[in-house]
């Protein structure tokens, strides 16, 4: 009576029940597995689990079960580590892209008079959980990315770029490394906007950002500082190296033109360069120095690179 009841219930569970002997032969399974494995009872009873499910990683599976038998403890295998052990169909075949059922498996020792004689494997369908968790992770990843990126130019946005500078600044201080900062501004951008409209201006920003990005090394950190102002952090770079990078950027942009609705727009940039100085106690000092140099480049007629005065003094002394 109780047996019939148990069989009835186990056949209606939304969980797979698979019972093996110590030689990994199948003693019984419930209807959940019969349906999702798409095999008949008489095709599996008495057969080795590795014959019925050839996809099982045999060595790993045997070792896993040996801990259950020897230590008489239950053991687990979750979908986050292994998406599935058994290749089974699942209950969301239409609305998810999962080919096989994602599974949480529990391995239970079944003891008779103190010795493990059977192993009961419970298989839960967690395709749903897996599907939503994967979507959530993807959304979080995209969110984290869009939180750091300037939508128009695809350079880092001001906030993230400044966080990077703060980190690089304290790292350079700690390890006594060099650190250079290049700030650049598009020349007469307002005029350009007046002549070509804001969409023309946007196209210039996008193309300029792309040309700058193409000139940088891995590890350089490029951001949009303001409207038409960009900035590049150059870790472990001295003044000579930074000036070279700045000059290369200036020349590349001066030489190229931006195509906009059949017209070509010429644009130049003014650039200020500063390197970390012993007197700089905060990263903002570095920005200020580069910014002052940038204003000098503007005042001296634009389309040129100026070095920060503090660093310039040092350069003259060394020379």
């Amino acid at each position: 009576m109780l047996d019939t009841l148990c069989i009835n219930i186990s056949n209606r569970l939304n969980t797979g029940i698979l019972i093996l002997d110590n030689d990994f032969n199948i003693i019984m399974w419930n209807r959940f597995l019969e349906v999702h494995a798409n095999k008949k009872d008489n095709q599996v009873t008495g057969k080795s689990v590795f014959t019925v499910f050839p996809e099982l990683p045999q060595k790993w599976f045997e070792r896993k079960l040996s801990s259950v038998i020897q230590l008489k403890t239950q053991s687990f295998c979750g979908w986050e580590q292994r998406h599935h052990l058994f290749e089974l169909s699942h209950s969301r075949p239409i609305t998810t892209d999962s080919h096989f059922m994602a599974q949480n498996c529990t391995f239970l020792p079944v003891e008779v008079e103190g010795e493990v004689e059977r192993i009961c494997i419970l298989i839960e369908d967690v395709t749903d959980v897996c599907h939503y968790q994967t979507q959530l992770n993807k959304a979080l990843h995209e969110l984290a990315l869009s939180n750091r990126i300037d939508g128009l130019t695809q350079a880092f946005n001001r906030r993230h770029w400044e966080e990077c500078l703060a980190k690089e600044f304290s790292r350079a201080r700690r390890h006594n490394h060099e650190l250079a900062l290049v700030m650049l501004d598009l020349d007469q951008f307002k005029l350009l906007n007046d002549n070509f409209g804001h969409q023309g201006g946007d196209k210039v920003l996008v193309d300029t950002a792309k040309s700058i990005n193409d000139l940088l090394r891995l590890g350089d950190i490029f951001g949009r500082y303001g409207g038409e102002e960009f900035a590049v952090i150059l870790p472990s770079t001295d003044l000579v190296g930074a000036e070279e990078v700045a000059e290369r950027i200036r020349q590349t942009i001066a030489k190229s033109t931006v195509d906009y609705q059949g017209r070509s727009i010429s644009v130049t940039v003014s650039i200020g360069v500063a390197i970390i100085d012993e007197q700089d106690s905060r990263y903002e000092d570095l920005i200020r120095n580069a910014d002052l140099a940038l204003y000098r480049a503007k005042a001296m007629g634009r389309n040129r690179v100026c070095l920060a005065e503090e660093t310039l003094d040092k350069k003259t002394i060394v020379a």
Partner: peptide, 17 residues
């Protein structure tokens, strides 16, 4: 055969149980 995560999860389970 198994990732680092799976190794420590497996060992944890064995030690605890």
């Amino acid at each position: 055969e198994l990732t680092f995560d799976e190794q420590i999860i497996d060992l944890s389970s064995i030690l605890t149980t």
